[in-house]
């Protein structure tokens, strides 16, 4: 991980989306993945918020890495994360109030995301600015992609709509918009993702 200079930026993004996908591969941050994915709109904005926080945290930590004392690095990381979460929290409250009303609590919970702290600790604090930027972008996009897939699945089959537009014309499986159905949805999509990924990774040429 420390010799990131040899890995291309594209590899860093791919790593976040495929190999170390926060939800489907690492199974981290599942609480918001189940709580906010009842509609595509909520899932998308939650994902965007995470991309923003992850990128900004990685940049900040990477820029300050020479000044952070090893002993107190975790509290410092937490302060940085809380700072950027506050920024995204206020931004969403101001510009997308209807989404914020539903997912606001989970936006604030981004502070406690294991994945964000983990990237700050494992990557940004050991790497220069540009690789940290792309690592944050990759990890955040991985989360966004997962959330979008889960919320499309749940909104389509739970409410019969996509972005509020009726597609099926009925509510096929109400359970999918309830928390119990969230677990079903995440489990099924996780299995599908890993199955496809295993086939992709087994191909020659893909690493």
């Amino acid at each position: 991980m420390s010799d990131a200079n040899q890995i291309s930026y594209w590899e860093l993004i791919k790593n976040g989306i495929l190999k170390e996908n926060t939800i489907f591969k690492l199974a981290l941050s599942l609480c918001p993945a189940i709580a906010v994915t009842t509609s595509l709109k909520n899932g998308f904005f939650m994902g965007v918020a995470v991309v923003f926080v992850q990128v900004m945290v990685n940049l900040t930590v990477s820029a300050m890495r020479k000044f952070i004392h090893q002993r107190i690095r975790l509290p410092i990381f937490m302060l940085v994360i809380s700072g950027w979460v506050t920024v995204v929290n206020l931004l969403m409250d101001a510009y997308v109030p209807d989404v914020y009303k539903e997912v606001g609590l989970y936006i604030q919970l981004i502070v406690a995301f294991a994945s964000i702290l983990a990237r700050a600790e494992m990557f940004a604090s050991k790497n220069r600015l540009t690789p940290s930027l792309f690592d944050g972008l990759g990890m955040g996009l991985g989360f966004l992609v997962a959330l979008v897939f889960i919320s499309i699945f749940r909104e389509l089959f739970g409410k019969g709509t996509i972005l509020g537009v009726s597609i099926i014309g009925a509510k096929p499986l109400l359970i999918l918009v309830l928390p119990a159905g969230g677990f079903f949805a995440v489990g099924i999509l996780m299995a599908l993702f890993n199955w496809l990924y295993a086939r992709y990774a087994a191909k020659p040429g893909a690493h």
Partner: peptide, 8 residues
């Protein structure tokens, strides 16, 4: 339980 919750 699944159908009970899905088709109340």
């Amino acid at each position: 339980a699944f159908v009970q919750i899905s088709f109340p």
